[in-house]
Every structure is written in structure tokens, then in C-alpha cells.
């Protein structure tokens, strides 16, 4: 709403300045000029607090990190040497970085995929007529409210290779024990379960909100055409949910690529940032944290931070373009109908 107002007030003085001869301008009284300035600048002032705080705690660290990433600097170094892009060059040849990248993406896929499928199904269930709907909706959100640290400790116990409940269960069912810590893929699954447990309910509610927004008429029309419940879900509900699903995918991309606490707490060695005995579940953020604050190579850690930042931007942009395409085809389909 305020957008057009600003545009107009901005336009008035500039057209006045270009067309007639310049000396006319000072006619405005001091009071008038103040009120023009008020209209012109106040909005900026009102939104300034956010940007100032963002500048101090968001932008400054961002820029300082990019500056640091060009130096060979350790935490306790008194002076640091400028090395240009050497940190980045080293990074791209660093097998531990690529290992961490693969781990991150693997855990991300293992967690986001099932998470969205379960979230949609849960939302569909919650969308049916239930007694006490609010109770159920709050219920699915409970894991999200629970403390992440408590969750990490509980899951590390559940997935303990020797005395864990999961392995105990597998054994009673006649399966072999799985080394959840040692086996690379198994550890990713265990961590993904932890992530899913926490985030599925949250995504369920977002999807549920989108389902509630689907006009009843469309569903009813489909019903009139003789579509069963499954057909209505697949052919009506799902296509109309796509923009929301993409939103959910984008947010879990950003979260998933930065996953840190779950793998850290999952490690059997308390407080370790190694991500397992051979870094089998070390994520990029864990590697960055370890490099910066344990090995204390601040410059190198800054380079990792920047690569991760760019990576997230690239994936987010890809997802954004995807959203636009799919959303627009969705509209086209609606129009056709």
C-alpha cells in the first residue's frame, strides 16, 4: 500500500525540477519541506531498526567472513597473511570437504523425501472429519516443540549399536544388528529419522493450511464427476498443493543443508565434531565448526562458510525457478478446467 504513495511523492519534486526554470523551488516553506521530508523519509526510518540490527548481526559477519576467507589466519594468530583465493583452491581439493558435502546431501535427501510424503498423508488425514481437530493438530507439532538436545540424546540411545532399542527390536524380529554409528548409510538413515521426527509435524501443518484453502467447489465438482477419494486426492488436491510443496521443499533445503545439531549429538564421542570415526556423517556445518573453533583455522573455515552460503543460494534459486514454472502450469491447468 505504501509503495505507490512513495512513488508519487518522489515524482512530484523531480518533474517540478525538470520542466520549469529551477529558481522556483525555494517557495516551499520550512514547514512544508519538513512534511515532504516526513512523507519521503519516515517509512525508511520505520523499517530502519530491522536493517540496522540485520547489518550488525547479519551483514557485518557476512562481509567480515568473506574478508577473513582471503587470509591464512588461526584463532590465536597475532597477524595474518593475505593468501587471495588459496583457501578456496585448497577447499576444492579437500577430500574431507567433498565427503562432508556428499553426507549433507545424502542426509538431506533421506530426510526431506520421506518427510514431505508423510506430511502430505498426515495432512490429508487431519483434513478429514475428526473429533477434537485442534488436539490432533497440536499433537503432530509436539516433536517440534521438544528440546533438540533432549531429542538428540534419546535418538543416540535408541540407535546405540550395542544396547540400543532399535537393534534390540531388529534382533527379536530375526534381522541382523546394524552398526548405526559405523556404517555410513545406516548413520545417515538414523540422523534422517531424527530430522524427520522433528520436522514432519511442522510441514504437515503448512500443507494442511494449503489444503484448507482449496475451494470446496472443485472437490465437489470432481465428486459429481464420479471421482473416488483417492482419485480426488491425486488429481485435485495434489496439483493444487504444488506451490506449497515447493515452499516446503525450499525451506527444508535451507535447513537441511545447514544440519548440525543432529549429527553432532549422534556421535558416540561426546562433544565430538568429527561426525563419526571416519567422518562418515560429518556435515558441512560440522566441518566448518570444527575447522574454525577446534582446529582454529579461521580463514579456511570462512571459506567453507562462503561456499556453503553460495551453494544454498544456488539451490534456492533453482527451487525458486522451479516453483514459478510449476505454479504457472498449475494456473494454466486451472484455466483449462
Amino acid at each position: 500500500m505504501s509503495g505507490p504513495v512513495i512513488a508519487e511523492t518522489e515524482r512530484t519534486p523531480s518533474t517540478a525540477a525538470s520542466a520549469p526554470p529551477p529558481p522556483r523551488e525555494p517557495r516551499l516553506t520550512w514547514r512544508q519541506r519538513l512534511s515532504v521530508a516526513d512523507v519521503k523519509w519516515s517509512p525508511y526510518l520505520y523499517i530502519a531498526p530491522f536493517f540496522v540490527v540485520f547489518g550488525v548481526v547479519g551483514l557485518f559477519p557476512l562481509l567480515y567472513t568473506s574478508y577473513l576467507s582471503l587470509f591464512d589466519r588461526d584463532l590465536l594468530d597475532v597477524e595474518s597473511t593475505y593468501v587471495g583465493f588459496a583457501n578456496y583452491a585448497t577447499l576444492f581439493r579437500d577430500p574431507q570437504f567433498w565427503n562432508a558435502l556428499v553426507n549433507t546431501i545424502s542426509i538431506f535427501v533421506l530426510s526431506t523425501g520421506p518427510q514431505i510424503v508423510i506430511a502430505v498423508l498426515l495432512a490429508a488425514l487431519l483434513n478429514t472429519r475428526l473429533r477434537m481437530p485442534t488436539t490432533w493438530r497440536v499433537g503432530v507439532l509436539l516433536p517440534y516443540v521438544a528440546s533438540l538436545v533432549a531429542l538428540g540424546i534419546i535418538f543416540a540411545n535408541l540407535f546405540g549399536p550395542n544396547y540400543g532399542l532399535v537393534n534390540g527390536l531388529l534382533e527379536t524380529l530375526g534381522f541382523d544388528r546394524i552398526d548405526w554409528q559405523g556404517n555410513r548409510f545406516a548413520s545417515h538413515v538414523a540422523i534422517a529419522v531424527m530430522v524427520n521426527w522433528r520436522w514432519t509435524g511442522y510441514n504437515t501443518l503448512i500443507v494442511l493450511a494449503a489444503m484448507k484453502a482449496i475451494p470446496k467447489e472443485i472437490t465437489e465438482a470432481a465428486m459429481m464427476d464420479g471421482a473416488g477419494a483417492v482419485r480426488r486426492f491425486v488429481s485435485v488436491t495434489l496439483p493444487l498443493l504444488r506451490p506449497t510443496l515447493i515452499f516446503v521443499v525450499v525451506t527444508s533445503t535451507i535447513g537441511g543443508l545447514q544440519i548440525f545439531t543432529e549429527p553432532k549429538l549422534f556421535d558416540a564421542m561426546p562433544g565430538s565434531n568429527n561426525g563419526g570415526s571416519s567422518n562418515q556423517f560429518q556435515t558441512i556445518t560440522l566441518y566448518m565448526y570444527q575447522t574454525g573453533f577446534e582446529t582454529q583455522h579461521l580463514g579456511y573455515a570462512s571459506a567453507i562458510a562462503w561456499v556453503l552460503f553460495l551453494l544454498i543460494i544456488v539451490i534456492a534459486v533453482v527451487n525458486f525457478l522451479l516453483t514459478r514454472r510449476i505454479a504457472s502450469t498449475g494456473v494454466a491447468e486451472d484455466g483449462a478446467r
Partner: peptide, 27 residues
């Protein structure tokens, strides 16, 4: 201290998880 915590201890754990002693040493 960091070598003990982040190099030898995890590598010994890897040996316990099935790595050969020589591969663990290399790690």
C-alpha cells in the same frame, strides 16, 4: 590434544568398527 581427540581416537574407533589396523593407521 587435538590429534588424540580427532585423529587417533576416531581412527581406533574405525578399526573397532571393522577397518583394518593399517587403514586405520593411515587415517
Amino acid at each position: 590434544g587435538k590429534i588424540q581427540e580427532n585423529a587417533t581416537s576416531p581412527a581406533l574407533q574405525a578399526v573397532e568398527q571393522g577397518k583394518s589396523a593399517d587403514d586405520g593407521w593411515q587415517q
